[in-house]
Design a protein around this nucleic acid. Structure first.
Lengths: 128, 128, 128, 128
DNA sequence: GTGGTCTAGACCACG
DNA sequence: GTGGTCTAGACCACC
């Protein structure tokens, strides 16, 4: 798989997996109908506890990104993901931007970084 | 004060206060030398426990944003805040941008939202 | 564990715990990768509140001595602790030495005591 | 006077004054029978609150370093200062030495620093 | 008046 | 099981 986790990060492990899968979907690298590797395999590959991956898959299912068919693995859902509340998104964005501002970046710099990251996010797959 | 907290958010209350104060500093609304309202007053205004605000002030002190003088109050520090690692910042940004992409926003939209939020962040105070 | 606290001291309890852990690390008795006992156990052993120990662990984490992994435990960090300013250290030393001088110790005595304490500090573990 | 205080230090202001006076006595710069400047003057010179200096003088009196004669100021006591408990002293010393060890100093370095500071402490006055 | 510490006990998040 | 957060309320230290 194309997932990695970092024990030294602040995000919990399961969240890193969730975010990683979402990123792959956003990049078009994972598309609807594709099957994700079994929980056990991912856990083994990443060297983390099995429950951690199970939690991540569960959250992805709850958010509508995966359809779990008992015995046949987790499949990327057709209507991938329901909208996250925009208010919440903007709040997260605001927090990150605040840190950039406090770090001394000016608006040009920040918009540049945003463009860079967007390009990186979309470089793989068909995107949309 | 201009702080708010939301019990339904995922961030802990004290973290919301920390982020709020940082945002005020970034916006130039709080400047070095200014005194923050007493812990008890903030706690009362926000309807949370005194210790929650004390924790927030403590973290802001530890991060170098505040200088706390025991019998006096908490004043915004001159060397406001130490640098956050850029790598960590970019990672946070990437996570947020992924959410936007998954929400169906295109790059134009996203950059637009970023510009809006930056403007909002900087509208108050002289900035600098 | 080899920690003790004393209610009659001026240092806050959590600070005594912080200093105690640092001393164990300095002595090489606690080394990187080792897991500290759970918060609740330490609290029970020392007869203090859980939160007091949690505060100590939190500060040690903030200072870079511990890496705390939520569901696991607190392990001694590899890059144990960031440097303390030498100026601040010397100031603390000066204050203590002043007390010894006022207590009637001569320089020989004082250097002797320093050597004793250093030896005690380093007797355990391989040091390094 | 030869006292200074630093608002950015961790020690409380009154404690800095106490330590400063003790240092002057230890150095022999202040000797028994000499009169300290009035509280008001010291407070003015240092730019701190009058109560802060009053607290410092009171503690010095309580510890036996000063004799306060109502109306005639504070006089350095003949039997300057009662012994501080040696156990407490050693504990303070141990804490400081721990920090030096954690800072990477070896025993030679540390003893060298101690000798330096002792010399600086005693350079003025007749000492003893 | 200010902020800091501590307790007792509840509940949540993570692995 | 682990650590983290929050509350309610007490008491202390500083200015």
């Amino acid at each position: 798989m194309f997932l990695t986790v970092d024990l030294d990060e602040k995000r919990p492990l399961y969240q890193q997996v969730v975010d990683g899968v979402k990123a792959l979907i956003a990049a078009g690298e994972l598309r609807e109908g594709m099957t994700l590797p079994p929980v056990r395999q991912v856990a083994g590959d990443l060297g983390v506890n099995l429950n951690t991956i199970a939690t991540a898959y569960r959250q992805l299912k709850d958010e509508g990104f995966l359809t779990v068919r008992h015995g046949s693995g987790a499949v990327v859902s057709s209507r991938s993901g329901r909208a996250v509340e925009e208010g919440e998104l903007r709040r997260s964005l605001r927090t990150v931007l605040t840190q950039f501002v406090l770090g001394g970046f000016n608006d040009r710099d920040i918009v540049g970084v945003v463009r860079q990251e967007l390009a990186a996010l979309r470089q793989k797959g068909t995107s949309r």
